[in-house]
Design a protein around this nucleic acid. Structure first.
Lengths: 153, 153
DNA sequence: CTTGAAAATGCTTAGGC
DNA sequence: GCCTAAGCATTTTCAAG
């Protein structure tokens, strides 16, 4: 599927998508046309989902991350649907994973402070019936990376 | 600090950083020169940390997310330092938060499968002394967003 | 802030190895 | 598959209102 040139291009782009084609082609060891063609192909085929700007959480006053470990006692399609709808209506909730095991869902919300977190929490439990929520407050973001390891591709 | 034009620019850029200045200025309701100036200022002042390409986890064979809730019994600066060093050496670990409360650290790793997760786990506990790890496997990524709410800025 | 335009950079296509 | 080179579009800067 992907050769080492493609992987190197992806590694560069997921670190800094503002690099010009010329810079990328230099570092990859290709000239710009084939490099540009590869980039376009990687985007067309969906290896690159999108290009985004990552903003500073602290500067935008959402420097506090809160994890919410959620358990339900209603294991139905209907409940799952309403849960997804509820979290989608709350933009502070940035991550939502459905888990196997004891905890059913793991969420992460970004908020200015604990008081705002409580408002988010209230908003959520008002919109969907939740059996148990365990909240964990992040004191420090040691790493929050969008860069994937490419060794398995 | 930021007015509504700035917030709108940030909202657009964190959704799609490949938008041209012309497109952004259209949607924001400014002409291109002042819009371009604002974008540059937002980058200089650090509201925009970086521009990156988001890659497809499934296509790159790291479609499985695993949360690791970690507890330590060595609450020393020395241990914290070695822990940070250890997780930084493992590229599969994409998120690391230090928490308040029962769980000391919450990590997320992206891997191809459970066998690879075990290798990551072994690698971690070999590099740093960990009192307890509780692993939670994600069955589904319902939401994984880099877009922050801008209402508190 | 706006418009308009020039200069520089970088993207995209064309043609050939 | 690759390259060089030309043509095109965009970004970036500048001047004037």
């Amino acid at each position: 599927m992907l050769d080492s040139h493609d992987r190197k291009i992806l590694a560069l782009l997921q670190g800094d998508s503002s690099l010009s084609v010329a810079e990328i082609s230099d570092r990859v060891g290709l000239s710009s046309t084939p490099c540009w063609r590869r980039i376009r192909k990687l985007e067309e085929e969906g290896y690159v989902k999108k290009r985004v700007a990552l903003l500073d959480e602290a500067k935008l006053n959402v420097g506090v991350s809160v994890f919410m470990a959620i358990r339900t006692n209603q294991h139905t399609r209907e409940w799952a649907r309403s849960f997804v709808r509820a979290v989608e209506e709350i933009p502070e909730i940035v991550d939502v994973f459905r888990l196997a095991g004891d905890v059913d869902y793991m969420l992460r919300a970004v908020v200015p402070d604990i008081a705002t977190y409580d408002a988010i929490y209230q908003k959520l439990i008002e919109r969907v019936d939740i059996y148990d929520v365990s909240s964990m407050f992040a004191m420090e973001t040691i790493r929050s990376s969008t860069e994937l390891p490419l060794d398995y591709a």
